[in-house]
Amino acid sequence: MSTDYQRAREELGRRLRELRVESPDGRLTGTELARRLGWPQSKISKLENGRQTPTDDDLRAWAEVVGQPAVFPELRARLKGFESHIRSWRRQLAAGHAPVQENWNTLVNESRTLHVWNNHVVNGMLQTADYARNLFERYAEFRRSPRDAEDAVRARMKRQEWLYLPGRQLKVLMWEGALRAKVCPPEVLVAQLDRLLGVVGMDTIHLGIVPLDAALPLPPGGAFWILDDRLVTVEDWHAELWLDDAETIALYRRVWDTFAESAVYGTDAQQVIARVRRSIKV
């Protein structure tokens, strides 16, 4: 967890403690507040000490019980301020994968150029429906989130319409390991690789493959997106990071450019994809 994020969470905790202590009805102890809210006392402690991120409902209930419901908008603004940079998967997937995909559709539709590095799975803009479905089902099981794979697949497939709009550019680099990852049945993976073979040469797609035996000036690191040089998103196991300061965006662009030097393109990329395809036993 980033220092800035943790600092903001601790500041919100201090504000919650202040509201509890300065309640118009008289100072409330943590134990009394927990009783009124029906929460474990440990939750009060974690929230006030910045060890747990509250939900909107938590903040609303807190404001009401301490007798200051009018401060809820302030508390919510504080929460949204630091969550705009670190978006936990627990929160994002509370209603399933489809709403997350719809939000991404809006983000992509507002963009004209995407620079992407994928080192673990095929990029979502180029996935087949069956490949995407397998991923959504696996993640839903792992994260114990609502199972809405079909709605999520439809949203992801709709996003791919962006590829056929004039003036758009998807500049995607994928490590060969992402092509080999057996995250779906062999026949689904073969169809996915066929899809990649077919998009090489499209006007809106600049696809580079970094072979496993290519010299890497940097370790593969994590996957990321750069949207119009205005936003970087990085996916981790616990959260999705949204980074919008110019220095960080420039750093990730340097990383992308570095990997681009190790990639192959055009017919050379097709040869790598075809080699992986031949290795799969269906």
Rank of each mutant, 00 (worst) to 15 (best):
R133W: 01
T29Q: 10
E150R: 12
A155N: 07
T31W: 10
V116M: 08
A98K: 05
V272C: 06
S279N: 11
L79P: 14
R275N: 10
Y252A: 03
R60T: 03
R168K: 13
G38Q: 04
D245T: 02
A260R: 11
G67T: 04
R253N: 11
E137K: 08
V190L: 14
A149Q: 10
Q52K: 14
E161S: 11
R278D: 09
I205R: 01
Q169P: 02
A178H: 06
W242M: 11
D4I: 05
L135I: 15
V183R: 03
N118R: 12
P146S: 08
I209Y: 03
T248E: 14
I273G: 05
G266A: 14
G167F: 00
G96F: 02
R195L: 06
L75D: 02
D203R: 08
R51H: 13
E240C: 04
M202W: 15
P217Y: 04
L163Y: 03
W104R: 13
N105F: 01
R154N: 15
I226C: 07
H120P: 01
I280N: 09
D151W: 02
W242H: 14
R78I: 04
G67H: 01
T258R: 12
W225T: 05
D130N: 13
R168D: 07
E150D: 15
D229K: 14
L218N: 12
R20T: 00
I249C: 05
A178R: 00
V200A: 07
E10I: 14
L170G: 05
L16T: 04
L135R: 10
E83R: 15
W256V: 02
N109V: 00
V108W: 02
L241G: 03
R91L: 15
D268K: 07
T204I: 00
H120Q: 12
N103W: 14
T258M: 13
R51D: 11
D244E: 12
V108L: 14
A34G: 12
L75R: 06
R60M: 12
R138S: 15
S42N: 11
Y131I: 01
R168P: 07
P99H: 03
Y139S: 15
L243A: 05
S262Q: 07
K80F: 10
H115W: 12
V264N: 03
P146T: 08
L173A: 04
A70W: 06
L243C: 06
L126E: 09
P217A: 13
G13C: 07
P40E: 12
Q169W: 07
T204Q: 11
A61Y: 04
D257S: 13
E141C: 09
